[in-house]
């Protein structure tokens, strides 16, 4: 192997180590709860805890709600901006990037001020209201990823011409959005969904401060009081997150024709 080809491999190897080593170390530590032997004792304890199942289930549900709500918000927005208000794209992009700049904790305190139980819209007055607020918060947190993914996906197909083609065939806007545009950006929506899922499962700040029984606060609580179980939990959370993503990919699977839309490359400027 020549030196020119070795260099990239070293870089890739180092990056892989950086990513894999902590995982391996965590996994190794999670197996050593019983002295002198490797065992899955820590996992047994974790799975036996009903709070684990309850909080993890809660977070998965919140994640799914976030994805559905986020997609319903972002797909039509990105579509309209690209189709009708292309000049607004920079503004919308800036707005969607704000959650990366503004810490989640600021968002939560803002929510608590606006929607507390004595406000005009008392979301936090009831458990379901707070859950709703939690999901809204998650939608905001995942906005940068969802919007970017969907917007890029729309850039890859010629939505203007597809829209006009559907219009000339008599379709209304809603039909166009759900039967023509959405199926063709499904892959993009899915990749946005994966990131949203990971964000929701890993969130501590919003759930903690809204006092919801989510997985993040549970993980933090266990981490304060136990030694081996947090490591096991981290591995479980990691595996479950990837498992859920694989499931999403499988269920959402691409339509047979969703691949390779060569429209954009063939399009020329309209004289």
């Amino acid at each position: 192997m020549s030196g020119a080809r070795l260099g990239p491999w070293i870089v890739v190897g180092l990056a892989a180590l950086y990513f894999v080593l902590p995982l391996v170390a965590t996994f190794e530590f999670s197996l050593s709860m019983l002295r002198g032997t490797w065992s899955f004792e820590a996992y047994r304890v974790v799975f036996a805890d009903p709070a684990f199942r309850q909080t993890f289930g809660f977070s998965v549900l919140a994640a799914l709600a976030t994805i559905v709500l986020g997609a319903l918000l972002v797909v039509p927005t990105a579509y309209w901006v690209r189709l009708r208000f292309p000049r607004l794209r920079a503004v919308i992009e800036f707005v969607t990037l704000l959650p990366l700049v503004i810490p989640a904790i600021v968002l939560v305190f803002g929510y608590l001020r606006l929607y507390n139980s004595s406000s005009w819209l008392p979301f936090t007055g009831s458990a379901w209201g707070t859950n709703l607020l939690l999901v809204f918060g998650y939608v905001v947190l995942s906005l940068p990823y969802m919007y970017r993914a969907v917007d890029t996906g729309m850039g890859a197909i010629d939505i203007r011409t597809l829209t006009e083609a559907a219009e000339s065939l008599g379709a209304r806007r809603r039909t166009i959005l759900f039967q023509v545009i959405l199926p063709n950006v499904r892959a993009a929506v899915l990749s946005g969904a994966f990131l949203s899922f990971a964000i929701v499962i890993g969130d501590f700040v919003i759930a903690g401060l809204l006092n919801r029984p989510a997985f993040g606060p549970y993980l933090a609580l266990i981490g304060q009081n136990r030694a081996y179980e947090p490591a096991a939990l981290a591995v479980v959370a990691f595996a479950a997150t990837w498992g859920c993503m694989a499931l999403l990919q499988l269920l959402g699977g691409r339509a047979p024709g969703a691949a390779a839309a060569p429209l954009r490359t063939r399009r020329k400027a309209i004289p």
Binding site: A171, P183, N184
Partner: peptide, 22 residues
């Protein structure tokens, strides 16, 4: 009248077939 109420057929330079449909 909007395009979808005119009963016209249009063919585009870029084909514009719906990629997700047979």
């Amino acid at each position: 009248r909007p395009p979808n109420a005119r009963r016209i057929g249009m063919v585009f330079q870029a084909y514009a077939l719906f990629p997700n449909m047979s």
